[in-house]
Design a protein around this nucleic acid. Structure first.
Lengths: 220, 220
DNA sequence: TGAATAGTGTCTTTTAGACAATATGTG
DNA sequence: CACATATTGTCTAAAAGACACTATTCA
């Protein structure tokens, strides 16, 4: 078939106020002009592949560069886009909240993924797929680290895991598992001194794992 | 961009002689006419979505109907197909060996996935991705059951899991886990009586789980 | 009856979780 | 010092694995 509409959409996720949230942007064009939707756009002949298109589109619309980005799934069919038979290769990206703040784009809205209002196209289903994938992978991988920013404490990371899993985790077990994954390194002498209590050690992802997940034999 | 070549490819996997194997077909058309490759084809305007296209293409080329079929990933770029910028939405299908035998198509060749020879397009990478996905999911799900056919014994299922994981499994633990997943039902009074030894009880997937995976809290 | 594999009971080892003690900041 | 949270030690409980015993068939 000729003339399939080929697009990419990006589910940009972050943790805001200990809640998993998705970035929505007001659409600048028809269809659904002015409606909040996932950042997306057409694949161009100049793109090296759909992943490059997703990175380009995300950067054009949010100014965010080089986030953790992983292919989610491809959604297709004659009815999902009013313009005709379409394919959307979707990706999900994980960033810390301050990356979104620093981008400072006025039209980005963050919506709690558990309280989504109506969305155009099949974007609601795409977001639900992304959230399910993230929550599933969080059970046995280092994936949530990409939501934590450059430097973070173990208590902070545990709150992120808990927000994703939806339940409190045992502190001792959590730390045993993080140690087992061997994905973090201590930022010697750097602590997070916020509050009238003992400061927490700052950590970061080992640089060689910036783009690669670490997996657990058994989940958290 | 207009004129993206939109195709589907199917990685049809089975267990032959306790080895994971992929079905390859001789291509009937250019490019790579006569070369063994994954069954694939163009998406048609009449298809309801890419999944329907994959089921249609698989049935047209192998006469196999309604296998377990799951989206794998989408491969894209200007160079993977000599005809131009292309997208392939890929799926993997799992069937028992006798489903392939019964289809009786003369041009299907089964190749051990650990000893792949040269393949056209990026089919080698697609197969490797499918195998990695299957092996990963086998650690904590009922996925391998779809390789076992209609009725099977627990020792047979264990050999399938072992072929996928590449290591022997503890019999007691394996059975505990299968029981925990609660995905099988006993075929009362039906046994596999092959060999000079105690016959093994036949089981089948619970009918309501024909298309849905069961997951384990902790892996095998 | 002996060989071969199926299926189960039980003890040991490993892993996860509960609980609490110690550590180190601020006001 | 009182208080709050970080970090660690240790005991208990749960899960996984090793091993062996019983079951059932055919030759």
């Amino acid at each position: 078939m000729n003339n399939v509409i080929c697009t990419v959409d990006v589910v940009l996720l972050t943790i805001k106020d200990e809640r998993l949230s998705v970035a929505l942007l007001k659409r600048e064009r028809e269809p659904y002009r002015g409606v909040a939707a996932l950042p997306g756009g057409f694949i161009h002949a100049e793109d090296n592949d759909a992943r490059d298109a997703a990175l380009r589109v995300l950067n054009e619309k949010t100014r965010i560069e080089a986030p953790y980005l992983e292919q989610l799934a491809t959604f297709s069919g004659p009815a999902r886009d009013p313009r005709g038979w379409s394919i959307s290769v979707t990706y999900y990206a994980l960033v810390s909240f301050d990356v979104i703040e620093r981008a400072g784009h006025p039209d980005i809205k963050l919506a709690n993924v558990d309280q989504l209002t109506n969305l155009p196209f099949d974007h609601r289903g795409i977001i639900e797929t992304a959230v399910a994938r993230l929550r599933s992978k969080s059970q046995y991988s280092s994936l949530p680290c990409y939501l934590a920013g450059e430097a973070f404490t173990l208590p902070h990371l545990q709150r992120i895991y808990e927000a994703l899993m939806g339940e409190p985790l045992n502190k001792v077990s959590f730390r045993r598992k993080i140690k087992e994954m061997a994905m973090l390194e201590i930022l010697e002498g750097q602590f997070d001194s916020a509050g009238a209590h003992r400061p927490a050690q700052l950590h970061r992802l080992k640089p060689e794992l910036r783009e690669r997940l670490t997996l657990l034999e058994r989940g958290l």
